[in-house]
Amino acid sequence: MSSLVWEALIAIYPFFSGMAAGAYITSTLPVLFKRDELKEISLLSLLISWATLIVSPVPLLLHLGSPWRAGNIFVFPQTSSPMALFGYLWITFLILTTISIIVYNWFYSAPWFKSLATVLAGIGIIVSILFSGYIGFIFGSNKAVELWYNPIIPISFILSAILSGLALVAVLYVIIWRLCRMQVNKSTLNTMGRIVWWILLLEVAFVGVEIFVRTYMQTAEWRTLHNILIEQLGFSYLGVQLILGGIIPLILLSFKRTTSSAGLMSLMSLLILIGIFAYRWNLIIGGQLLLEASPYIYTTITYTVPLTGHGSILWISAIFLLWAFLISLALAVFSNWRMGVKIYG
């Protein structure tokens, strides 16, 4: 076979679904965890989650060999397959997000607003965790691919999903508020920075423990995998995922000066987002670069994203443009996000 079975389109799917789940979780923080400083961005987080959620299955559909049969996943779901969960989780998540947006946008003054928001957030946080965790399970439970076969991956996917959602909301919060000439609230940024730092610490710890244990065990597979990660994916693995998207934000976010500054906070969040994208890429593409040429021998292959055609940079750019359009559309239709803390306070 000349190309990968799961190429760039599959690598961007968990990136989008993670951000959708994470943005929803961000919106639940004021209601479920009494983080009142984040009330200002509740509706914004929901709108970002909704737009990202709609885009998330697009790369999957484009990847399928027979996309016209995609409905089979609803008609003939096989319960033993984690992938079969996708359709039901996605639909449930989309309904929840839509209802939450309607409630936050138009019924914020109703007497039942707080109770309904709490119920929606309670169900939503479970669905979000399942939605990001099941993708990790697809990879973590696959014994045929050495880099994926790892029980830590589902947990790591959930953590990085929350992280990417928070980071995305932080970046867009600063950009949108600046564009609308609105005052960015420092306590909102500080709280987000603190939560991001703790989750980033956990995520870095998980990845660090995995690398340490695997390096210590020195299995033949890991020696080969290590060569792939260092030689073929050296820049995106060491440079982007670990240093740029992990260590640097972890160090800088520990200073209050960083989390108080809109510019620095959005820069750190952007670095985290790029680091998480690199994580998905290195895991999904990197895992497939180690090919079993025989039951006894490994070989390695190379992969370059084509400029045009199936799974190309052009297709991926179109998906990102669609995403930007949907976020703008959501912000235009449900415009009460501008009122922020004034209505939910």
Binding site: V5, W6, L60, H63, L64, G65, S66, P67, R69, A70, N72, I73, F76, S81, M83, I138, N142, K143, A144, V145, L291, E292, P295
Partner: peptide
Amino acid sequence: RCIGCGYCVQACPYG
């Protein structure tokens, strides 16, 4: 019925 998602291709340890 197959949708061509490739999950089984990834899951087969024999390629």
